[in-house]
Design a protein around this nucleic acid. Sequence first.
DNA 1: TCTAATAAATGAACGTGTTCATTTTTATAG
DNA 2: CTATAAAAATGAACACGTTCATTTATTAGA
Lengths: 237, 237
Amino acid sequence: MAGVSGLTPKALRTRERILEAALRLFAEKGYEATTLRDVAREAGASLGLAYRYFASKEEFALALYMRLAEESEEWVRDGLVGGTVAERFERAMVAKLDQVSPHRGPLAALLSRSLDPNSPISALGEGTVAVREKMGGVFLEVVRGASDAPGEKQARELGNLLYALHLAILLYWFHDRTPGGRATRDLVGSARETLRYLRPALRLPPMSRVLSRLAGALGNVGMNATAPPAEESGEAR
Amino acid sequence: MAGVSGLTPKALRTRERILEAALRLFAEKGYEATTLRDVAREAGASLGLAYRYFASKEEFALALYMRLAEESEEWVRDGLVGGTVAERFERAMVAKLDQVSPHRGPLAALLSRSLDPNSPISALGEGTVAVREKMGGVFLEVVRGASDAPGEKQARELGNLLYALHLAILLYWFHDRTPGGRATRDLVGSARETLRYLRPALRLPPMSRVLSRLAGALGNVGMNATAPPAEESGEAR
DNA sequence: TCTAATAAATGAACGTGTTCATTTTTATAG
DNA sequence: CTATAAAAATGAACACGTTCATTTATTAGA
């Protein structure tokens, strides 16, 4: 819907202008309070034009999240070196929290809407494949690059699980009213501890099976951030 | 907002008539497709009158969930006898799934909206205290009535955790497209297995601490389905 | 350069959730 | 029974997300 590929340079520039205006207004007045008419006016465009590039208001938030995901991808490649799975997950989450901090409003709206299975931007639907794969890849890299990385199959399962966990933590953060998001930081610390505690157990068949089940359960509802090993590539069905 | 207390008998009757009409239409045409104008017409009332008794469209879904919660409360008191925590949780969840099955649309909309911290019916906000306490009590009873029930403090923590888990499983179910919700049933089975596996470990300090942390984390964002032990009663602040 | 086709852009119109000033009904008091 | 206040009920109006028929700009082919 809001794919960037196959757009004329001019179209791209216009899209960018409108997105820029939208994000500026979201930051200024908040997501709910910002009208698409406001956005169009701010961008010096017409209302209809905004809809040429963004199928819905939520897609602005989705575009924002896509940007942040691209940043994360770069960051995890260049800035995240060494460490165990547990440590790397914590560092990645702390970085993620710092990154999303200025965008609470739009992202909260996005995440909650995306949990509605009927929404066009359902977190598990067609419209979010790209961003899902991008962020899924980030957490796959978190696992793969770790000093205690498991084998490829389990790495994929664990990557998917961490991706899901990252969404849960973001959801938690949106509800966290403690100053500076202290509670969420604590939660991330707890997650690190639990991961550290659990990681060795993953070598044992019972725990390995629990992980597989969990990853399978996520896959059953379409939450394969990473493509399943069997099929060709890309699509998750 | 949509509290039933302090209403004239006539008002109560009218409220009921409108709610009845709404639920009928939701079941018939789906939640999104049902207009509040439709509801008013079906109830033989005016549009404005509907807003006298329900502050928003979502409150209809909330009222529905409250009804189901009352049913669950009865059921867990009279119909759920014996069994371990793990077994009882499974039975309660299976019953819950059977119960919500005919109401997928409205409840999915409700749950996803209620995960938006800015929504007036945020799952953790003022507007949902009543239903939260009702369903929280159900899972507290699931734990307390078990043959392997822990002490009161841990029972409360575990009850809160199971309440949160039940929400997560419902969220999963909304996204579950497998026929008959097979995937969700499997997930509930996995949850039972994991609980069974974990229950003995709760006697050990490390796991006990994990549970406390998790329950504390939930409490930090207001998800105390059950009142905290310290304060007077009812309110969670 | 003219013409046709394609892309970009417009803004009026629509539907729906929500608000509110107003009217009608019901209950209460003298 | 009447007057008065409170509760119940009304429906027009509003705002905003979304759609779409139409207009304007741009590109491509001769």
